[in-house]
Amino acid sequence: MNRAVLKAQIEEAIPSAFTVHKRQQQQCIPTGITQIDNAVQGIPLRALTEICGSNMASSGKTSLLISLLAQASRNHFCALVDASDSFDPCTGQAAGIHLPRLLWVRCGKSKVKLRPLEQAFKVADILLQSSGFGLIAVDLSSIPERFVRGIPISSWFRFSRVIEKQSAALVFIEQEPHATSCAGLVLRLTNEPATFSGNLLTKFNPKIEVVRAQGKKPVRSENLGFSLQTQWA
């Protein structure tokens, strides 16, 4: 059978069978850290991002989140789902977060039967249903790893499908990446020894590894270094 005839027959039965799906140009929210913004253009909208780092050692993941919130709150309304109530508003303001534009949800603080992890996921679900937020960040990094590992892959898949249709970025802060292929960007942070200037802690020297990025094909790891200063430095 002629190829053209076959194609016509298929198109008659399935009109969009040969329509090329054009991927929209990736829009990003800058993180405010030049090295990361140069490497991956920032945190992608319409995608799930994972920022990972150790819970016990200082990795710089919270500093990255705070910097991202500071940049995002200039142009968007942001939501921070804080599973362990560890956000420090004082640091947030020092970093330049426009606090009135930040919805802070403190999980596990009242006498509710649900565990903080379940609360965080339910709240993230509610926030995704109500549009209008440019950045939804879910901080799970203080939740023990064994609990986060138990989240079924279907939950991550659902989040990634929902966020695809919204002009917002969904960011998870964890100890290890869990969303696998559902994540559009995975960043892993580790820290080199900090700098003490005399008697003062002044500088952090985190290393960041781009584990996965949608915009970069083929996927490859990339290591970047940057420095963060303390408020008093």
Binding site: F87, A95, S141
Partner: peptide, 29 residues
Amino acid sequence: FAVQHFSSIGESPNSSSAGAPVIALRVFR
């Protein structure tokens, strides 16, 4: 700190407000 009612109506931030990244403190509460 206090936690006040979140509203989507309010003044826009000063565009120059986002400063250089700083080291964040994760608080144990």
